[in-house]
């Protein structure tokens, strides 16, 4: 029973990781790829760790630390990537792709432009 439950958790986790990879290919720009890359991988790897904890109950404490570590580092790295992309001037929407409706909006670019105009940077 434990082996079945553990394996099932690992399998579901792997599916989420697969979806994250698919998202990296399907999404149109850096920021949206980041969305797929951060979120699906978080739940995916955590489910795999929980599955391991069910399969190998003696290791639960170390796996718990790993989960904590992922919760702390995963968002940090994607934040750093998104932030540096924006500093490099990567636009929020790619031109020439028309798979979505609605104009893009970028409050951060506006705020940066305002600051530059005010000379406070």
């Amino acid at each position: 029973m434990g082996a079945l439950l553990g394996s099932l958790l690992v399998l579901i986790g792997s599916v989420f990781l697969l979806l994250a990879g698919l998202g990296l290919i399907r999404m149109p720009d850096v920021y949206n790829r980041m969305q797929a890359g951060t979120k699906a991988t978080t739940l995916g790897s955590i489910l795999i760790f929980i599955g391991f904890a069910v399969l190998f109950p003696g290791q639960w404490a170390r796996l718990a630390i790993l989960v904590l570590f992922i919760f702390l580092t995963n968002p940090l790295s994607s934040h750093a990537l998104a932030r540096s992309a924006h500093h490099q001037g990567v636009p929020v929407l790619l031109p020439n792709t028309s798979t979505w409706d609605g104009a893009g909006r970028d409050d951060l670019a506006d705020a940066k432009a305002e600051k530059r105009a005010g000379g406070s940077i």
């Binding site: 998202g23 978080t42 909006r105």
Partner: peptide, 26 residues
């Protein structure tokens, strides 16, 4: 919220029309 967001993004990735409307908000 983590569980909800993961399922939400997974659905967006799988949906053929890619239902996204991205932007940066303050």
């Amino acid at each position: 919220a983590v569980v909800k967001s993961n399922i939400d993004v997974a659905f967006r990735v799988l949906a053929p029309r890619l239902p996204i409307n991205p932007g940066i908000v303050r």
